[in-house]
Simulated scan of single mutants.
Amino acid sequence: MTLTNFITVASLFIAALWALLKVISRQGEKRISERFDALGKVMADIAKTQDRNASATLELEREFRKHQADMAREYLRRDDFVRHVGIIETRIDNFALRMERSLDQLGVKK
């Protein structure tokens, strides 16, 4: 085997290894590109979900604030009701006392 043949075989071997490394690196780049594309799709889905969650959260907050306002109004109504019932009970008690006094003055026994 001559030096020229050896250099040729060595250069062919190196070229074959170089081509193999290029093919492997292209496949790696293709896989990485596919993964990034899939990751981009997942991130886009997550962004859409976050947007929906944000709008749902805002709607829930609006409903909660409306409920708070309604509860405040209802609480005041309930408080007024309790006050009015107390007034009515006082009037009934006063009426009963007047009736008892009237009956006592008339001399009617219980």
Rank of each mutant, 00 (worst) to 15 (best):
M1S: 11
M1T: 10
L3N: 09
F6R: 09
I7Q: 08
T8G: 04
T8H: 13
T8P: 00
V9E: 12
V9R: 07
V9S: 07
V9K: 12
A10W: 13
A10D: 11
L12D: 10
F13Q: 08
I14N: 04
I14M: 03
A15D: 06
A16G: 05
L17T: 12
L17Y: 05
W18N: 03
A19R: 05
L20V: 15
L21K: 08
K22T: 12
K22R: 06
K22S: 03
V23H: 08
V23T: 14
I24Y: 06
I24F: 10
I24L: 10
S25T: 15
S25L: 11
S25A: 15
R26F: 14
R26M: 12
G28K: 04
G28Y: 03
G28N: 14
E29S: 03
E29A: 09
E29H: 01
K30Q: 15
I32T: 10
S33L: 13
R35Y: 08
R35E: 07
F36C: 06
F36Y: 10
F36G: 01
D37N: 08
L39S: 14
G40Q: 02
K41R: 12
K41W: 05
M43K: 15
A44Q: 13
I46C: 04
I46W: 03
I46K: 10
I46T: 14
A47W: 01
K48W: 10
T49P: 01
Q50R: 14
D51V: 01
D51A: 09
R52L: 14
N53R: 12
S55R: 14
S55I: 13
S55Q: 14
A56V: 01
T57P: 01
T57M: 11
T57K: 13
L58S: 12
L58N: 07
E59K: 14
E59T: 15
E59P: 00
E59H: 13
R62C: 05
R62H: 13
R62A: 15
E63I: 02
E63T: 02
E63S: 07
F64T: 12
R65E: 06
K66W: 03
H67Q: 12
H67M: 12
H67S: 11
H67T: 15
Q68T: 01
A69W: 00
A69K: 07
M71K: 07
A72K: 12
R73Q: 07
Y75A: 05
L76I: 11
R77P: 00
R77Y: 02
R77W: 01
R78P: 00
R78W: 02
R78H: 15
D79P: 02
D79Q: 11
D79I: 14
D80V: 13
V82Y: 00
V82G: 04
R83F: 04
H84C: 03
H84T: 08
I87S: 05
I87Y: 05
I87H: 04
I88R: 10
I88T: 12
E89W: 10
R91W: 04
R91E: 08
I92W: 03
I92R: 02
D93K: 09
D93E: 08
N94Q: 06
N94T: 12
F95T: 09
A96G: 04
A96C: 11
R98N: 11
M99A: 14
M99V: 15
M99R: 04
M99D: 05
R101E: 07
L103N: 09
L103G: 03
Q105D: 02
L106E: 01
L106C: 02
G107I: 00
G107Q: 00
K109D: 07
K109A: 07
K110C: 02
K110S: 10
K110H: 05
